[in-house]
Design a protein around this nucleic acid. Structure first.
Lengths: 198, 198, 198, 198
DNA sequence: CATGAATGAGAGTTCATTCAT
DNA sequence: GATGAATGAACTCTCATTCAT
């Protein structure tokens, strides 16, 4: 049983504590400037323990990234089974996105993911898969809109979902550098315009 | 050709070649993974030459970033004096953006800027200034649209410019990971929708 | 033998070996010309081990200097409890000083301490403290001379101790450059003259 | 005509300016921590000029040391032809010594000389010669004391001169670290005691 | 005479990784 | 499972020295 498979269970405490520590330190200092020493100490262990569980720093980062993006995605799954009106589901989704985005360390971490993904083919693929899943969830939500006649039957959901993601990502990026760049309302207004709900 | 100018010429050349090399190596490997050794070698010099011109790696990066963002911005300035129709100015702008974005190394470099800016207050400020200038240029273009009655007089140009930037950045980000994520036409269509030109 | 003690033993050994190596290499090459690489190699380790124990070269030097001066001082402490005659205690003290001074590397090392102390306020303070302790020990010895009526009750011990230290340091310095500059007898004679024992 | 011989004349301005700068920067930062860049700049030149005149940093330092020690010595030569009383010549000499010792940078520089001399045979020889000259001057002064019956005819002048130098050097060293360690009066008193003038 | 662009060896320091305990 | 001593490669940065101008 190799190291990696041990963690496919994702059950033991050290795994969780290292993941939590990673969120903090990778977010705060970035991948390169975070030493294993610091990461382990933050988790309450020492360097040695880290290598007991993970093959290398890179290996760990990839696993951490998968974990993080997967957890991120899960926050939106309840929307798929919601009984609320279409408009309120949309609002709800934007609110969740807004809240997650403003969580400490998330945006810096996301840039870190981007920075690394853009230079590493295999990481890029993971990001691509993540985006595809993202589009899919939005498509499923939008489908509800069509079914309830809130959206035009002609709307290309695939394209529309990509537009929505672009807008959300774009606002997020902008907000990282320009303070008070946007409000929840503005995002909501723009997305509704895109959906033809205005 | 006197002594001074020969020395100055040489100095200017090494400065410029280091800047050019930076675009390549920072884009390719990222800030942390790029060593001064590599950067200098890429420019055809040795480490020592680098430190003849710049105080430190960080110092250099900031200067390089300023330089790069300033050059980037300049590509859009001709739009301000264009005599073309409003719609074609918009198309033209998007085309320029699209072309620059697809230049090798630009997107990775931009993520690098983001990654560093988000953790460094002084870099963040530079990014903020850059974004402000960006908004301003777009506002000036949109103003033309108002003057020629192509845009509604009620349109809040400040907010609209931010929306446009968000959309462009967002599509750029998406396109870095999802291949064939969008076409020029799609961006143009979305921006025209935002402007109420559809 | 439990885990902790084995680790601790190893750690103590490398610490001690680095200190010992420092006596040799700092004495031989001086502070600036001694590289951490050389120091570590002399101790039988590599650079990394050095940084396991010490924060920086400067930090290490200060710790080493404290250590060395403290050990130096300890050689004289037995004099304080000696039952020998006052004159023989004085002779004994000078002999110890002479022996320590002729130990390989000590004088060069002492100049190194001086060189650095004179330019660094915090090192200077340590040197000052060291001299004060030095004066004190001599005062305590001289006090015995007063109690046994070998020294005049009028003698200012504080000032006299400083004179003795000056003479010893001065001869040491001279002896570093002028071969056969002085003999033990000459120092002893001068100090006895200062004490009014002649 | 080689580089060195140019300067045997010791006439040109650059020579003097570099010597003056050296006194300041070597005194302030020490040999190793003083860069040629800084030295030249302090003298009002650039690196290149330095190498126009001197073969290497070490070469320059030795020449500077010779120069400095020679100038130092010259301050005492007037004593040899003085018509004052023996006691006042002694006082005068100590005063000159005291004044020179308290000149900014001199003591640190002297330690630098010691530090380097003790590790370099040829520099050591220069120091030895300097000390010999030093002893000689003092001997010549003391001879006057004998001729005027102020000193015992039995006094071994050679040994006495060495004692005096030891006392002066020793007090100087002490004074570098222990503030208010000694006064002119104390030195004078001790030296007079050594001479049997008390 | 004087400059300063360029070099390259070498410095102090960090850190991912290994492994005996 | 957990530790921490040890390594060595790689990094940023400095500086004595050279030489074309």
């Amino acid at each position: 049983m190799d190291k990696v498979s041990k963690h496919t269970l994702k059950s033991n405490e050290s795994y969780q504590r290292l993941m939590d520590a990673a969120f903090k330190v990778f977010g705060q200092y970035g991948y390169d400037k975070t030493s294993i020493d610091l990461l382990a100490k933050e988790a309450g262990y020492t360097k040695g323990t880290f290598y007991l569980h993970f093959k290398s720093k890179e290996d760990f980062f990839l696993e951490f990234m998968d974990h993080k993006l997967s957890v991120y995605k899960q926050h939106f799954l309840p929307l798929l089974n919601s009984n609320a009106t279409f408009e309120s589901i949309i609002s709800q989704g934007i609110k969740i996105f807004y809240k997650l985005s403003n969580e400490d360390n998330w945006i810096p971490l996301f840039f870190e993911f981007c920075s690394i993904a853009v230079r590493n083919e295999s990481v890029k693929e993971r990001m691509s898969i993540y985006y595809q899943e993202w589009f899919k969830i939005i498509c499923m939500v939008l489908e509800k809109g069509k079914q309830t006649n809130r959206l035009s039957a002609n709307l290309d959901l695939e394209i529309t979902s990509r537009k929505i993601v672009a807008v959300l990502d774009g606002y997020n990026l902008q907000n990282s550098f320009v303070s008070n760049s946007y409000s929840l309302d503005q995002i909501e207004q723009l997305i509704k315009q895109i959906l033809g709900l205005d």
